[in-house]
Amino acid sequence: MAWTSIKRIYWESVIEWISQSTGFPPGNRIVWQLLRYIGTNASISVALTLNNAPHPQTNKPARSPANTVQDIAVIVLNWNSPVDTIACLSSIAEEILRNSSRCRVRLYPVDNGSQDHSCEQIADWIERHGDLDVCFIQNSHNLGFAGGMNAGFRAAEIDAPADYYWLLNNDLTLCPGALSALLDATSTDPSVAVWGPTIVHLNSDTIQCAGGGRYSRLLGMERKYLRGLPLDKVNCYRHRPTRFDFIYGAAMFIRGDIIRAHQGLDESYFLYYEELELARRLGREDRLDWCCESVVSHQGSDATSRDKGQRARSSYFAAYSACQYTWRHHRAFLLPMILIRMAGLAVQALRETNPELALAPWKAVFAFLSGRTPAPPQA
């Protein structure tokens, strides 16, 4: 026994020396081949050493057991639309009740400097749902989408770091089973960094976005996956391999270690393109994926596009963020992107008889080129 231990220590020292000399880890094939030339008894000792050597560390999380209770933080951003926000919160509350044995859900509604009675109405809803774990955050002014979401993220991190963060637009409502489908997906494949559900138009079975989509550098626009397809056709695409450039920002289910590593969303984007920037910063091993069975309904527009004036403001921020993202990552495409995008918006403005829609993007371009920060929209 003593002689065996001495031989093992000897061969461990040899392995360590070869690894340091060659730069290869102990389990590398080259190290193994070199050892074969050193001694005939190497195979037994090396096998013992390699079996007990630590495996290389990876960022891939271990598969979660089916009975693991996950900690989920849900962040919902409100801006002057309490009716939509309360409908969203109510649908989340129903999903929490359905999955109470599978996960702990903490709810973080964030008011982003609303100028109406949003805070009072949301606070009243929270008071009537005292059984929920809710932390209501009220920003003094509009911090933009990323800034508002990050306020909720930071509050959740202070309470307790979550396994997953679900960032939701306030004009979404969860369909029954939306959360449980995501929990199933994360247990099956925990290596996915960001999940996206199937998003359908409100009061319709038409798909608005299945998970995420691709990005056109030339147009500076996103192309949402399966957009316009009836929901009953979605099973045909369930197992089809799909590459995403982003997960649709209206509903991002983000792994906790991922959002912590990037300290939330990039607040240099006031509105739009935050999801593209997040996807851009992910590593090669951090996948984006679509959870087909998780379905949520969306009004199809955010809080900035209820009338012509608000549509123009929405167009302004979209154009500004497009310039910002293109300049940061695809500078050679900035000029053609601006020209093509403006031409398309001009045609759309003529069709809708909305001249502000044509002027707003040009104002955004000039603001970006002159280095001005976009001003928050007013109610």
Rank of each mutant, 00 (worst) to 15 (best):
D111L: 05
D245A: 10
T198P: 03
G213K: 01
I207K: 01
W3E: 14
A123M: 00
T326C: 13
G23D: 09
R128W: 03
Y165V: 01
K308P: 05
S91E: 00
A156K: 01
T85M: 06
S90T: 14
N67P: 08
A87T: 06
D124L: 06
E16Q: 12
Q121W: 08
S81L: 03
R240A: 07
D116Q: 12
H141M: 04
V76W: 06
P374M: 03
L107R: 01
A93G: 06
S297K: 04
Q299P: 04
G228V: 07
Y320A: 09
A318T: 08
A42S: 05
V234N: 05
R306E: 10
A155Q: 08
I247N: 05
V347K: 10
R372M: 10
D286V: 04
I86R: 00
A367I: 07
L357S: 02
A261T: 00
I38S: 08
L143F: 12
R154N: 02
I9P: 00
E120Q: 12
D286C: 11
R351L: 13
W17P: 05
R331S: 14
A343P: 06
E293T: 04
A261N: 03
P376S: 13
A155L: 07
T40F: 06
Y237I: 05
G196L: 06
S19E: 12
R154W: 13
L339C: 12
P197S: 12
A2Q: 15
A62C: 10
C103F: 04
Y316D: 03
Y325M: 03
R311V: 00
F244W: 02
Y269G: 00
H117T: 04
H239P: 02
C292S: 12
A375Q: 11
G264Y: 02
S321Q: 04
A47Q: 11
V69A: 15
V31M: 12
A178Q: 05
D116P: 03
L369C: 12
L168A: 11
T353K: 11
R227W: 02
S180I: 09
Y325L: 04
I126F: 00
A178T: 04
A251K: 00
S191R: 09
T304H: 11
F136P: 01
N41D: 13
E120I: 10
L202T: 10
N235K: 14
D189Y: 08
C292Q: 13
N99A: 06
E95A: 06
I207V: 09
H117D: 11
M337I: 09
H201Q: 10
R227A: 11
R217W: 09
A379L: 15
N354T: 02
A210T: 13
R255N: 04
L50I: 07
S180Q: 10
F24C: 06
A53G: 09
N235F: 13
S204W: 11
V295E: 00
A178H: 05
T353Y: 15
C103T: 07
A2V: 15
Y108Q: 15
L369F: 10
W327H: 11
S43N: 13
C175P: 03
V46H: 02
N170K: 08
S13T: 05
W17T: 02
D257L: 02
Q115E: 07
H330M: 06
